[in-house]
Each structure stands twice: as C-alpha cells, then as structure tokens.
Amino acid sequence: MTAMTSLQYIHKKGRFGDSNKKGGKNLLQISEVKNLAIIQLVQYKKSKIEPGTIKIGDLDLPLKSPKVTTDKETRILWNAPRTWLVISSKKNIISTIKDKCDDKNFAVTDISHSRAVIQIKGIQAKEVLKKGCPININEIQVNSCAGTVFNGITVMVDFVNNNPDTFNLLALRSFGETFYHHITDSALEFGYFGV
C-alpha cells in the first residue's frame, strides 16, 4: 500500500496561466516532491556532545543559519539552534541517523507524513517567492534555507539549485492545499507547468 501524499488530489498537471510560447527554462515548473524521508533531529540541552563532530553519512550537521549540507540524496537543513531537518530520498536514513545520534543526546522524529513539499523551478521562481515571502530572496544563496512565512503560512524555504533556480518549500501538511493555491496563484502571471 502506498501512502497518500498531501497534494495527491490537489496538484494538477499541465500548463496554466501565461504559459503560451514558453518552454524549457523559461517556463516555471511546479511539482509536489514525494517519497521523501523528513527527519527532525533535536539535540537535548543537557547534551555535551559537540554537534560539529557528528556526521550523517558523509554530511556534517550545519552549525549556523542558513546553512545546508548536501549530497545527491540527502540534505541537512539548519532549522534552529541544536535542531536540524534531514531530508532524504534514502528510505533507511532514520536508522543511519539513530546510529550516529543516540537517544540520550538526541530526539529523532520522523515527520515525513506531516509536511507538504512543493518544488518550484525556473527563472521566475524567485519572483513567485517574492510575492509572499518577507525575506530578501535576492540575497539567498544556493544550498541555504530559511524558516519564514508565505502569505502568513509558516514555511521552510530550501534553495536547492541555481541553474535554473529551484526551491523546495516545506509547509505543514494541513496547510498544504492552501499553500499550494497561494503558490500556483502567484505563478499564474508568469505561466507554469504542473509536473
């Protein structure tokens, strides 16, 4: 049995908005990112372990905002002091994390089911974000992240790639539908392709 994703009956595929005569990098793509393991890692206050010494696979835990460490399958986002989000396409990532982060020092929680993940990709991706996010999108660097709001909805913005600009946007699952409509409404002006 396959788990139902948060946008399974919401996300529509095809061309929308002002997408005529646009294609390739000129056309914004919006998709739902599925089958990701999203693990929240929190170091207890009493823990004496230095997080800089811990590696998840080959990845260090980023120690400051807005750092993200990444390889092909896994991204580790700095979420807050002593708090990280590990986002991975590896199914067994939670056991890898638990091997490195023992339960006396860390709380490891699988929150994969509780997030809606939308990816926007294309040269206008930053323009779409600027419509709802108060952060300075022009200054955000590739492989960095920011916890912020989009039209009042709390989201995590993860800048995945800059060729073309690609952002993964994580919102609480229960806000997924509203958030999806906010993003797609903002993208209509540029035209988009639902993938």
Partner: peptide, 11 residues
C-alpha cells in the same frame, strides 16, 4: 540573534 534580520511578521 540566530537567523539575522527578518520581517516583523515572522515574529
């Protein structure tokens, strides 16, 4: 002090 300058509506 942790994230840098942000807009009031995040707070």
């Amino acid at each position: 002090p942790y994230c840098g300058s942000r807009s009031q509506n995040e707070f």
